[in-house]
Design a protein around this nucleic acid. Structure first.
Lengths: 246, 246
DNA sequence: AAACTTTAATTGTCTGACAATACTTTTTCA
DNA sequence: TGAAAAAGTATTGTCAGACAATTAAAGTTT
């Protein structure tokens, strides 16, 4: 099990890397039980505390799970799309918020990816996803909806669109791009007029998907991107005026 | 700092979640120093070992880094695109290998996303990425190249294409899709004829990018997808014949 | 045969100690 | 005086050993 990357890092990192390699390379397969902490501490010639810290690192990445009791231990986890989704979203949000990524850049990435999805979603459209999109459009039109709820509904609409492509890998890869936009969108105040413009575009997109018109859906998303970018630009400019850059 | 998600999980998980919330919500900002392990163990009323396991979980997600010495401690990490890339690739590879994702599905996802990139890459094309693509094409034509090296070069070519879009968010989101294909591609044996077909398509794509012809690049990628899918289908069918299912 | 008890294995947590590291302060001495 | 050396100090890294909590399996009783 001791194989690679034994640098000048601390011991738990080395041990975690060693076990991770064994999992990635297939030496340890899903649901296989790792040696007990006591055995591992003998194998790696470190204390149990050190082994535990290594195992916790792996658990944090959902690579293993642990179970107490007589037949317990650490087991190789089957990474679920759900867990991977969640992790990717957290990472994406932090990445954007910590690296001063402009709204423009994030928005471009999101719509570029989503447009790629549109033709597939149109081809494979199915009533479940269409209905979800319609429901969210309905919600977005309700008066008295908070900006935050409007954004959440917007994200749900787009998630339905992406999931409609019926390709789990695609859904997973796009999760970060779609969801990580929400905190950025939340900084925007949506006027009644801007909301109705967005709802109209959403309806166009849903119609195109339902009509299996991939090109139309793509065009609708392109228009939505322009609308969103303009809206953001207006909001940020207006916000700059009262307090003109320190 | 004690805020949310205090369920029936173990203590390190709860503590890690609590600190993670503080980071995600912005209560702890980049490069800020966390209290020392001793202080945290007092705050959370647990032993230092338990705090350490929690911190290791966060370190595993690159959320914090630690430093020894008098002015040391745990600091909130600025998640770099590089680190996020690496994590995403690992997760994507494991996700595909553990969930019996078909070659077809993964391939479709990858090319769908990449096609979305092509217009941007064409518009913003720059000599660095063009040269990288040309270099990889050159390498792919060399005789005596191992299948594995051919695949690695293929990935490098596509990474250059994606990076050419000059949008770091896009590059990050696509990293998983592009790189996670490599282990799947590695299962394929590339004949001289199939290699030359791929190289020709790569050259077409590079030419289109250089000519700022986004549509052409997209079409080239579509053709490459068809070629790749056919190739994979042939290889898998042939492999089934000598050993017909068990 | 079913219900209960005991046993053993394993992870979860705690305590206390010492080592390693790196910055700060003090001392030394040229 | 001023720079180098030494000591001090706060912090993480690692260890050893202990006990608690949990769980499945084996054994015992009814």
């Amino acid at each position: 099990m001791k194989s690679s990357s034994e640098l000048s890092t601390d011991l738990p990192t080395q041990i975690a890397a060693s076990i991770r390699d064994a999992i990635v390379s297939g030496d340890l397969i899903v649901d296989e039980r790792l040696p007990s902490e006591a055995e591992l501490s003998l194998q790696f010639d470190v204390s149990r505390a050190t082994v535990r810290e290594a195992l916790k690192r792996l658990a944090a990445q959902s690579l293993i799970r642990t179970q107490r009791g007589a037949t317990g231990g650490a087991f190789v986890n089957r990474i679920s799309f759900e867990a991977a989704h969640a992790q990717q979203i957290t990472t994406s949000i932090l990445l954007l918020s910590m690296n001063d990524v402009s709204f423009e850049t994030a928005c471009e990435a999101r719509f570029t990816l989503e447009r790629a999805c549109a033709p597939l979603s149109a081809k494979r459209r199915n009533s479940i996803h269409i209905n979800m999109m319609r429901e969210e459009i309905e919600r977005q039109g309700e008066a008295g909806l908070s900006d935050e709820a409007f954004c959440a509904s917007d994200v749900a609409f787009h998630r339905a669109l992406v999931d409609g492509a019926d390709n789990p890998v695609l859904s997973y890869q796009l999760a970060g791009a779609v969801e990580a936009m929400q905190p950025l969108m939340n900084m925007i105040t949506f006027t009644a007029r801007s909301r109705s413009a967005i709802v109209t575009l959403h309806r166009d997109i849903a119609d195109a998907i339902e009509a299996q018109d991939g090109v139309g859906a793509s065009d609708g998303l392109a228009a939505l991107e322009v609308e969103t970018q303009n809206l953001a630009r207006r909001v940020f400019e207006q916000r700059k005026r009262p307090e003109p850059k320190m």
